[in-house]
Simulated assay, not measured.
Amino acid sequence: MNILDDLKLQYKLGGIAMRVIYWNIACFLISLAFFYQYSGGGFAYPNWLALSSDPNVFMFKPWTFLTYAFFHATFLHLLFNMMVLNFASNLFMTFFTQKQYLGLYILSAVFSGVVFSLSFYFLNVAGSIVGASAAIMAILVAVTTYQPLMNVRLLLIGNVKLWHITAVILVLDLMQFRLDNTGGHISHLAGAFFGFIFIKLLQNGTDLSIVISKTLDFFTNLFRKSPTTPFTKVHKNYKKPTEKVTSRIVTKDKTQQQIDEILDKISQSGYDCLTKEEKEFLFKAGK
C-alpha cells in the first residue's frame, strides 16, 4: 500500500472526526490555489467564504456562518487547530456518536459566528474571521464538561486532568482578548459556552445534534433514488415490541470502537506500527 491508499483508508474508516480534519485540510489547499496572495504573502478570502461582521454582507450570505469554520489564515493556524481538533475529537468520540460530533461542530460554528457578528456590530467594529477554532473549543469544552477528571498524558509533563488543559486554553483566550484577534477570541469563548450548554442539555435529555442529523437525512433522502420493487403482500404475526427507554448519550458498537482504537494508534505512531491482524481487520472492515 502507498501513502495515498493509506489516506483513503483512514478517510473511509476514520469516521466523521477524521473526515472533518480532511475537509479542513482540503479547504486550505484550495485556498492556496485561489485565494493566496503570493506578492503580499497572505490570504484574501472573499466575503462569500469568510464571515463578515457587516450585516449588509452576512444577511445576504448566511452560509458564511458555516464556511468560515473550514478555512484558515495561515499554515500554522491550520496545523495548530488540527492538532487540537484531533486531540479533542479522540476524547469526544470515546463517549458520543458521530452524529453528535458533527452536530456539535456545525451548531457551535454557527452560534459562534452569530455571536462574533453581533458583537462587532454593536461595538461598531468591522472585521471578518476564518478558522475552526470556535468549533474545536466547543468539542473540547463539551467533553471536559462530561468528564472533567479524565486523566490525559502529555508529552514531557505526564498525567494531568482534562479540565486543567481546557482551563489553561480558556485563560489564554481571556488574557489575549484585548491584545489582538479580538473577533477570534470572541468566537472561541462563544464556542466554549456552546459546548458546555450542549452537554448540559444532552444530560437532561435534549440532543441538539438531532437538528443537524434530521436536516442532513432530509437532503440525503431527497436526492436518493428509491428502488422500484413490485408490491408484495406479506402476512405475518405481529407482536407489539415493548418500548425500551434509552439514553440520549449513545455508545458505539464494538466494531467501530476497535476501528477508532486502531486509527488512534495510527495517528500516534504511524501505520507501520500496526500488527498484521490489525491491518487485516481494517481492510475487512472497509469492504
Rank of each mutant, 00 (worst) to 15 (best):
L32W: 00
F75N: 04
K252N: 08
S209D: 00
P55W: 05
Y11V: 09
L208K: 09
L216N: 00
S112I: 06
I266H: 03
I136P: 03
K214Y: 01
H77R: 09
V114F: 15
L79G: 02
L102M: 14
T232S: 01
F87M: 10
Y146P: 00
F28P: 02
I262M: 04
L179E: 06
I157K: 10
P230H: 06
H77C: 08
N24C: 13
T220Y: 11
T255L: 10
A190F: 05
S267C: 05
R178M: 13
S119H: 04
V125P: 00
N221R: 08
V141A: 08
Q257K: 15
S53T: 03
E243L: 13
F35L: 06
I3D: 14
L155I: 05
Y68T: 09
L9E: 04
L85W: 02
M137Y: 13
K279H: 06
T206D: 01
T255C: 05
R248T: 12
H188R: 12
D253A: 07
G113F: 00
L189N: 06
I25F: 04
N47V: 07
Y101H: 04
F95E: 13
W63I: 10
I212L: 08
F60D: 01
G127I: 12
H235T: 14
N204K: 15
E243V: 10
F281Q: 04
L104H: 03
Y271S: 10
F65I: 05
L155G: 00
F65C: 05
I21P: 00
K236W: 01
N47G: 09
A190I: 07
L179T: 13
F92R: 07
M93F: 03
V143T: 14
T97M: 01
T229A: 02
Y146H: 11
L79Q: 05
V250D: 00
S52N: 12
L162E: 09
L179N: 10
F283R: 12
R153S: 11
V141L: 04
Y146K: 05
K161N: 06
P46T: 13
T246E: 08
V57I: 15
I165F: 04
L91E: 09
A73R: 13
K12H: 10
L154M: 10
F193A: 15
M93V: 08
L170I: 15
K61T: 11
I169T: 10
G103I: 07
S53C: 02
F194I: 07
F111M: 10
A33Y: 11
L104Y: 05
N81E: 06
P62E: 12
A17N: 13
E261K: 11
V234D: 00
F35I: 08
Q203F: 02
M82K: 00
M1Q: 07
L79F: 15
V20D: 02
A134E: 07
L202F: 04
F116E: 08
E243D: 07
T246N: 06
L32S: 08
K225S: 07
V171C: 10
D260Q: 13
L222A: 09
V84Y: 02
L9Y: 03
A285M: 07
Q268T: 10
M18E: 08
T229I: 14
I199H: 00
